[in-house]
Design a binder for these strands. Sequence first.
DNA 1: TACTAATAGTTGTTATGCTAAAAGAAAAAT
DNA 2: ATTTTTCTTTTAGCATAACAACTATTAGTA
Lengths: 147, 147
Amino acid sequence: MLKEKFNQYSFVLDRTARRVKQFAQSAFVENGIDLTVDQWSVIKTLYEHEDLTHKDLADLCGKDQPTMTRIIDLLIKKGSVQRVEHPTDRRSLHIQLTEVGKDQAKNLAPLVKEFRMQAWENLTDEDFEHFSRILNTIYNNLDKKKI
Amino acid sequence: MLKEKFNQYSFVLDRTARRVKQFAQSAFVENGIDLTVDQWSVIKTLYEHEDLTHKDLADLCGKDQPTMTRIIDLLIKKGSVQRVEHPTDRRSLHIQLTEVGKDQAKNLAPLVKEFRMQAWENLTDEDFEHFSRILNTIYNNLDKKKI
DNA sequence: TACTAATAGTTGTTATGCTAAAAGAAAAAT
DNA sequence: ATTTTTCTTTTAGCATAACAACTATTAGTA
């Protein structure tokens, strides 16, 4: 493989990831949605799973725990979620959607799905397969355990 | 296209970009390199181009101007770069590598290239073409001007 | 020439990412 | 049963990302 050619991949990856996020955030603002993209992903995840702890949530959302703590703090301020005692483990907390949060999840999901799709214009199902395969291979190649 | 299937792409994109950066940062630390990945990309870009302004640098590195200002502030503290007056435009500043910065650029480039390549194990040249094409298409699909 | 608009850079604010380290609690080991 | 280790969450500190507002300067235009 030619090292020169491949050396720039992180630039492409980085700027695309940032634009995807930025685009979604703009769409949120335009639609009057008072959430960040990351806050939304937490609400969505909570809507799809029951009784998650901070740690579960962090794993499912691909965030680290300190970040998750802060996102949840913000979501509590906005009234979308609440912390509840874990029934058997006093170290843990369950995070639950409030009624507000459930409404958000229900109402916003189709909208978000809609503008997310704009990224895939001019691309095929096959491209999506390549995309997923290649990015996941990179992700696994750089697994921390292997360092 | 099935919306459900595509809805998760930003998750995959995001976590891969973060891991790539994290991996590089770990390698920097392990090799005793006192730079962040983003600081390194500025040094590298300055080494490859002469007489860049803040704005030029920001564009080439794919960062916005406030972020670039802050990265340069840090690099000045570390002694790698310096700000110089623009010959004809008093609004602008040229950023130059110091001797320290040039040494860093020269010495670190091969090392960085080396561990960057670890991402591409089990992937082919063709995969790299797919990767670049798909990510750049997404990037352009979400162009701000089109919103 | 004088006025207005555009540009380059900086600063402030909020959110996130990462690391390290703390406190409290549970699990494992002796 | 006590000690040690591990786990869950939080806090703190630094760097980056996005956006808005501001200053100084230049360019465009009447």
